[in-house]
Amino acid sequence: MKEQLLKFENVTYRYEDESEPALQSVSFGVEKGEFVVILGHNGSGKSTVAKLSNSIYLPTEGKVFVNGMDTSDENNEINCRKTVGVVFQNPDNQIVASIVEEDVAFGPENLCVEQKELRKRVDEALQSVGMYDYRMHETHKLSGGQKQRVAIAGILAMRPQCIVLDEPTAMLDPKGRREVMRAVRKLNEEEGITVLFITHFMEEAVFADRVMVMDDGKVILDGTPSKVFAQTQLLKKVGLDVPEVARLAAALRENGTDLGDVLTEDAFVQAFSRKMEG
């Protein structure tokens, strides 16, 4: 088994004034280099996972480990946050500085990275998300997708091993959503950064190595996208949907044509043309 970068062990989390816990005895691990998507409707507890993963919240019961470090140990706080970076939902409320490159520098500045290295990290992080040409722009004039990519660069500049994204596309238009997805996939594929991506858009889960579905503070499904999206009934029951392409493939299967496990548009087109030719 590969090394587990992030590990939740029977984690329960209760918000102060709530009777029901937001998370109920949740256990899972994320391996190095994996791309994991957490799906769930609003209030399923999926966003609580994000804040628990770098010791912003501490579990009420159970333990969270980052690279083997217990997040509830105060001495590990900075190291946990350096290892696991979190990007939040609202792009406007996580940008600290008025100029793009100054915002990206905020994290490493806090880590007291010395100037020469700092410059390098900021430039590289901006290049990774394709925002280098905007480095001197004012942050408030960017589009939603651009702001969110700046936020990702701000985390990247701290050189984390894992990035947790808490519904980073929920407030974006389709173009912004595509930009962010492309940037995140590139980080995972080319730079080997472990990704935990929290969303309620089914289409964003099809590229993942693994999908977890949450409901009522529990993980109710955990597996490859094709395995998870085969559970049409269960997903419907917890207020989620199956991606359109998978629905189309299922409808064709009912009509007597089995295209196999297809979740993406390209896979569908290929499978279909094979049927037509063969």
Partner: peptide
């Protein structure tokens, strides 16, 4: 939250870009 996640601790010793 976002500032905490980016390791801000109110420290004056932060370096600068």
């Amino acid at each position: 939250f976002a500032m905490e996640a980016r390791c801000y601790g109110g420290d004056e010793k932060r370096t600068r870009l």
